[in-house]
């Protein structure tokens, strides 16, 4: 690990000022992704600004009847919150489908959203990777790509977003609040938060340099039955090969997003309108234009079966 200086921020403004003023500085929250990547020298910050003492760890009701979740709320506390369990079950389920109890106790909401991808070549500093070293090339194209994305990819990168929580936040139409050095807060809809690789695969998020995530907000509950089905290589404790987050209503309508298949949680509103027609119609529309590799083409039929299972579960 490269040497770095460390400070604990006293206020959000001070944290943002410190990161903005110091070249190579980064925020650290739980550290479960950042420190892992620093050990591999994939991330090499020169200065860490610890944000965990900031007053951003509460979950509050909003005036409209939704929830405002502080960026430093742990994954465990979010999944365990009575209102989340009752009104946003898909979120609790997605969170506990990810990582382990130890990691979820440490991981924060903000850090979870900003976790980097799990492409094996991104982790292997001996080989080219456009995300790690822009312009060096993509080792996954023509390489081992079983776990990677089938849609939303580009000629420069085919990595998938590995997160579980974000897939649930996508079906719930969450919004991300971020504060900048001028003290201004802007709100980013989750649909726009994760960038597709296009020509700049190293730019993964809509967050600007120095911006601090302060909260994630959820609109009022939409009812329905809540589902998160994760297909992975082991029964527990593995990243998704395919996951399905869904909220289903009795009339057969609902919302659905797929994880593990694209550089962002993959929700296509036009596809979810097909829900009353069944899983095949939804998946055909959601994956229209997909460019899977030979290794990962299986993900599309797998997504269809996972959704079929969820729909059956929804019917009880």
């Amino acid at each position: 690990m490269r040497p770095f200086t460390y400070e604990r921020a006293a206020s959000p403004a001070a944290a943002i000022a410190a990161v903005t003023a110091t070249p190579g500085a980064k925020f650290i929250a739980g550290g479960t992704n950042l420190l892992d990547l620093m050990k591999f020298e994939i991330e090499t910050p020169t200065h860490l600004v610890d944000v965990r003492s900031l007053p951003l760890a509460t979950i509050e009701d909003t005036e409209e009847g939704g929830l405002r979740i502080g960026a430093l709320v742990t994954n465990t506390d979010l999944a365990s919150h009575p209102r989340v369990k009752r009104d946003y079950g898909v979120l609790s389920r997605a969170i506990v489908a990810g990582a382990t109890g130890q990691l979820r106790n440490k991981a924060s909401v903000g850090g979870n959203l900003l976790q980097r991808n799990r492409c094996p070549y991104f982790y292997n500093t001996a080989v080219p990777c456009n995300k790690r070293e822009p312009g060096s090339g993509c080792s996954a194209i023509g390489g081992v790509s079983r776990s990677l994305a089938v849609i939303g990819t580009s000629e420069l990168c085919i990595a998938q977003n590995p997160g579980d929580m974000a897939v649930a936040l996508r079906v719930l139409d969450a919004r991300i609040e971020a504060m900048n050095a001028a003290g201004k807060t802007r709100t980013i809809p989750i649909a726009e938060f994760f960038r597709l690789p296009d020509f700049t695969p190293a730019v993964e998020f809509a967050l600007r340099p120095g911006e601090l995530i302060t909260a994630v907000t959820l609109p009022p509950p939409i009812g329905g039955s809540h589902h998160y089905h994760k297909v992975r290589d082991r029964a527990s404790y593995a990243f998704a090969i395919v996951s399905v987050a869904a909220v289903l209503h009795e009339d057969g309508t609902g919302r659905v997003a797929f994880g593990g298949v694209a550089p962002r949680p993959w929700r296509v509103e036009r596809a979810e309108a097909e829900l009353p027609q069944g899983s095949e119609a939804v998946v055909a529309a959601a994956f229209d234009g997909a460019k899977p590799t030979q290794d990962n083409a299986f993900k599309i039929p797998l997504a269809e079966r996972a959704l079929a299972l969820v729909i059956a579960e929804g019917r009880g």
């Binding site: 550290g31 610890d50 965990r52 382990t100 130890q102 990691l103």
Partner: peptide
């Protein structure tokens, strides 16, 4: 953070001590 051999309790909850800085 993969194996759990380093699990300790911090303020009553378990974490992986390998994925945390002492300074934190």
């Amino acid at each position: 953070g993969h194996c759990g051999a380093c699990t300790v309790l911090v303020n009553g909850t378990r974490i992986n001590a390998c994925l945390s800085l002492a300074a934190m």
